[in-house]
Write a protein that binds this DNA or RNA. Structure first.
Lengths: 181, 181
DNA sequence: TACAATATATATCATTTTGTAATATAGGTC
DNA sequence: GACCTATATTACAAAATGATATATATTGTA
């Protein structure tokens, strides 16, 4: 999803400022599958405003820039509904960790070990966050579905890594030349 | 990984043109975790050449542009090895499908059904490709590890979706008011 | 208590990435 | 014969990303 659609999606659950949109994505259900920074959000909101898909109310504040609270217009709501029914792109995973594992053969074993341990810790941290969200209750069915999905996938990843890590580290412990000789 | 590092990574497995790098990423092990288009590859190769991380040999061809075959320099090889040991970013998944599922409540049930079926088909297609690669044999341990990883995760996704799809479609079939009454 | 870190809030700029089209030809399919 | 796919690179606009700037209140730590 592009930044504009993501902003519309967050705003469909309640009015928000750019700053609040960021927080909502980070800690809400969208966070499982999306990532967005301020440098994407603010230009997106400007363009949405140009197209009358959102309206703005400014609140003066002391010590900070004025807070601009955005609100979906009827047009914006229609636009979101339209976007949701457009053809989906296929899912994508980017993994720096797996990328490095492709080079396990040529990396120092201790480095590989460390990377694996770090990744497993990250997964456990993610699982903890998922469980916390699950205890806090869900906004709708999709939210519950996605949380369960994320938990299942993270667990599968951790299990696979734990069961197969010896392949990687074993291979880097024994230099290939030694095997050939 | 950025485009430059990805190019270095592919070139570390053999000399290639931009076009061939694209194909290698698409159908090789990198394809599980990376995506890259020509509009990223060619500028990346230019910059790598500027920095002497790759060298080029041009081959004249008829009917097509000259083929430029790139080759890692010693410097390029060092640079790749360095990049592999830099801190990893956390893994990221983008899913248009899951994004839409968050709005299952407000989408027509038939549309949701269709999206789920499409997604399951895509996963099966991906699994078929993974199995084909597994039968073709692996280049190194990392490759085998990643293939198994991808298979495990895709299978976990499909199973979860099949077991929980009724939640989503049920929710959009039965208006919430009807449940409350 | 002093100092540091975090939270609040937006803007901007350079760099990267992405999507799309242009170009040109050979070979296979309907 | 028309159309699609494969080969191969370039160019350009649009979008996303990372980093920095600005300014202050609050919270946490030593």
């Amino acid at each position: 999803m592009d930044a504009k659609t993501l902003c519309l999606a967050v705003l469909s659950q309640g009015d928000a400022s750019g700053y609040e949109i960021r927080k909502a994505v980070e800690s809400g259900p969208f966070g499982h599958i999306q990532d967005i920074g301020y440098s994407s959000i603010y230009p997106a909101l400007s363009r949405l405003h140009d197209d009358d898909l959102v309206s703005v109310t400014e609140y003066a504040q002391e010590g900070r820039p004025d807070k601009k609270v955005y609100k979906l217009t009827a047009e914006g709501r229609m636009s979101l509904l339209g976007a949701l029914q457009e053809p989906t792109e296929s899912d994508k995973t980017r993994s720096d960790f797996l990328f490095r594992m492709l080079f396990a053969d040529i990396l120092p074993p201790s480095v590989v070990e460390q990377m694996i341990d770090n990744r497993l810790q990250e997964i456990e941290a993610t699982l903890a966050r998922i469980n916390a969200r699950s205890n806090a209750g869900f906004e709708n069915t999709g939210d519950a579905f996605l949380n369960g999905f994320a938990a299942t996938v993270q667990r599968a990843m951790a299990d696979y890594i734990e069961e197969n890590r010896y392949q990687l580290v074993g291979s880097s412990l024994v230099p290939q030349r030694a095997v050939a000789e």
